[in-house]
């Protein structure tokens, strides 16, 4: 079957049997070996890629579901050889053996796209589908928080004119920009454990 999709921003036409795993299509047909396999049962998250912007386990996705889709893998995170803030943040202990890192980065990237200032608990939940045996998750959570901070700072620096006051405030007290606060509040999903209410 011929599958048309965008992989890391590039349009591709891939000839592949339809039920082959997206993971194998990426690794074997397209030779994008950054995406890893740790279990083949959806548990470890090492194979996480973004499918239309959402993190999915590529070991559980048939190639035919990539038809017309946009896919981002770890290879697509850096732009023109420059590491993304998230990748940069992972250089300082977030990646030990590194086998979980590509999947972890993709899950974290998805989180940061929807929440510019995630709290620790939110980060931990967003990464709960990515097993890491090396780090105890401490430096990973730190890296995600750091990347969020760097990204916010960069965004603030880009719009100095209107938001000057806010940027100044950020410097002084390490507070977030108001605009970002709003983004942080706009949580896409109910957080778990909220008591079911009387309807």
């Amino acid at each position: 079957m011929k599958i048309r999709c965008r992989v890391n921003g590039v349009s591709r036409e891939v000839e592949t049997p339809p039920m082959v795993r997206l993971l194998d299509m990426l690794r074997e047909t397209l030779r994008l070996t950054g995406t890893k396999e740790g279990c083949g049962e959806g548990e470890c998250g090492a194979c996480t890629v973004l499918l239309n912007g959402q993190p999915v386990n590529s070991c559980l996705v048939p190639a035919c579901h990539a038809e017309g889709a946009s896919i981002v893998t770890v290879e697509g995170l850096s732009k023109r050889g420059k590491l993304s803030p998230l990748q940069e943040a992972f250089l300082h202990g977030g990646a030990q053996c590194g086998i979980c890192t590509p999947g972890m980065l993709m899950a974290a990237q998805a989180l940061l796209q929807e929440n510019g200032a995630p709290k620790e608990a939110v980060i931990r939940e967003a990464l709960a589908g990515n097993l890491c045996r090396c780090t105890g998750y401490v430096k990973i959570v730190e890296a995600v928080r750091e990347a969020a901070k760097v990204t916010r700072a960069a965004a603030a620096a880009k719009k100095p004119a209107r938001k000057k006051k806010a940027a100044g405030k950020e410097k002084a007290g390490g507070k977030q920009k108001p605009a970002m606060k709003k983004a942080a509040r706009k949580k896409p999903a109910t957080s778990r454990g909220k008591r079911a209410r009387r309807a």
């Binding site: 959806g42 967003a126 999903a189 109910t190 778990r192």
Partner: peptide
Amino acid sequence: SWVGARQIQN
């Protein structure tokens, strides 16, 4: 919200 984790829920 308790099914699997993010990737599975998607």
